[in-house]
Amino acid sequence: MNIQNPEIENNVFDVRGLNLWYGNDQALKNINMQIEKNKITAIIGPSGCGKSTFIKTLNRMIENVPIVRTTGEILYHGNDIFDKSMRVEELRTKVGMVFQKPNPFPKSIFENVVYGPKIHGIKDKKLLMEIAEASLKSAALWDEVKDRLNDNAYGLSGGQQQRLCIARCIAVQPDVILMDEPTSALDPIATLKVEELMDSLKQEYTIAIVTHSMQQAARISDKTAFFLMGDLIEYDKTEAIFSNPRDKRTEDYITGRFG
């Protein structure tokens, strides 16, 4: 079936009636939301609201938690990710993830970047080098590390390590990059670099980012979703959310009037 609907084509993810439980605790309640192609979507909300759970569901990373149960659909380019025909490894290649704390492997900078491509069977040294260079350039790290690719990644600063993780994610040619508070452990300069990087990456990738920083969400994202206790309260253009939110609960949260 080939539906020529530009709205559908522009949506990378179409989440429909998603519910998620950890055992008996419901963490996500009837979430309906679309994530648009080549846009940065920010997800905000207080701790425990379900925002990290939500993005980890998008590449089924959440299933590493044994007691998780879900209902509803998540269409990724029109295909339900929970369908039996969906290959999870392939989904996670296409939908990569960057975490709060930089987590490079205890290997060289080069080996970190080409880890994914190697697992996917690429052995050619020249090709691996090309992938490493392109990925590090995309992650705005190349100039800083090109002369020490064989140094251990642990020798990099926190900000560099996080960009290395982004490079590692890019190296397997994903379509979507999920980021779970990617700058919360970084200083303002390193944060700025990662934010600038995200802005340039959205030309090629779709990004969803969980952040606790209102200013960060306001600065970098195109659309913002506000979650509260498992509900998606409001989802709109970022400028609307931060200048004139429609829901009182959104207003109370972003102005710090909560609770």
Binding site: M214, F242, S243, P245, E251, I254, T255
Partner: peptide, 9 residues
């Protein structure tokens, strides 16, 4: 204070 929403307006 980085005012937002109604505070900003």
């Amino acid at each position: 204070q980085s005012p937002l929403a109604s505070d900003l307006r």
